[in-house]
């Protein structure tokens, strides 16, 4: 009895730790970051077009960083959604059992590669390649970051979409064939619509992963702080601004608070994307999907 109770409380403590960590993190970033909103003004902070935290006087407008994050993340999704959903369809519906056995672990292995290695690849190979192909002085830019992030996100989208595709009831697929549909028509008209919510959540999760990724963008995105006018410009997404500039700040400086302010914005964005995933998953079944 005592043992059982002890076990219960030990595991409860373990579970509560996550709650404590989460709220600890939220508390500390808000504590350090809220003052910048007061100092600069909410609107000027979010929509200010120049980020020059070390100039005199400093400018704390993070719009270039937000635009960079969105540009790079959107580019990453442009790469990863077709590749991820495509490979999920192939693995779950088209591959022979043998091919599936080989492909599935390979895609999963891709998820296990440390991000710094992706970054190295982007710097050493993709960068020079991009600069040669597009005739740019350097190949470290939004395009490079989009491609590398896109490849990183493929396994997330692929494995979660694949689970969703596998969950589509056999009876629905048979009904489709029995009405004269072929494999392709069945995938397009029955399987994908029925797996819609899972596929959408995989994309939202991939979005969250891409926008939060730091090491890769730090290494390959180029780092310029002006609002990018094209995908060939070097950019500084929010994550790499925080990581790159944290070392230059001094305790209690506005620059430090501004970096925490960026962290708040990032946190809110990922929080909302998590909420969307939850909501999509909870609403599945309403239309049978």
């Amino acid at each position: 009895m005592i043992k059982e109770k002890l076990f219960k409380y030990l595991t409860l403590t373990a579970a509560l730790c996550s709650v404590v960590f989460l709220f600890g993190i939220i508390f500390s970033i808000f504590k350090e970051g809220y003052s910048i909103f007061a100092e600069v003004g909410f609107f000027k902070f979010i929509f200010g077009r120049s980020w020059h935290p070390t100039h005199y006087p400093p400018e704390f407008g993070i719009l270039p960083l937000i635009v960079s994050s969105i540009l790079v993340t959107a580019g990453a999704l442009l790469v990863s959604v077709p590749l991820g959903v495509g490979s999920a369809i192939y693995i779950s519906e088209l591959a022979h059992p043998k091919g599936k056995e080989i492909l599935k672990p390979i895609v999963e292995l891709l998820a296990g590669v440390p991000s710094v290695i992706y970054g190295l690849f982007g710097m050493a190979f993709l960068g020079p390649f991009i600069s040669r192909v597009f005739g740019l002085p350097v190949g470290l830019n939004a395009l490079n970051a989009s491609i590398i992030l896109g490849v990183m996100v493929v396994p997330i989208i692929s494995s979660i979409s694949e689970d969703a595709l596998n969950l589509v009831p056999r009876q629905l697929i048979e009904a489709s064939y029995a009405l004269g549909a072929n494999k392709w028509e069945t995938i397009i008209r029955v399987i994908l619509p029925a797996a819609k919510s899972g596929v959408i959540s995989s994309i939202v999760l991939g979005f969250g992963r891409a926008i939060g990724e730091t090491m890769v963008v730090l290494m390959v995105a180029g780092g310029a702080t002006s609002i990018p006018r094209s995908i060939f410009r070097p950019v500084r997404p929010m994550t790499s601004a925080i990581a790159a500039e944290m070392g230059e700040t001094t305790m209690g400086s506005s620059h430090l608070h501004a970096l925490f302010g960026i962290a708040i914005v990032l946190f809110v964005i990922t929080f909302i994307s998590n909420l969307i995933t939850e909501w999509v998953m909870r609403n599945r079944g309403k239309n049978g999907a």
């Binding site: 009876q171 048979e174 029995a178 009405l179 004269g180 049978g288 999907a289």
Partner: peptide, 17 residues
């Protein structure tokens, strides 16, 4: 075309969502 000529109704109702 065979399956359009020969329709099938299954043991459990299986309408599409």
């Amino acid at each position: 075309s065979l399956r359009m000529k020969v329709g099938m109704v299954f043991q459990r109702p299986n309408p599409f969502p």
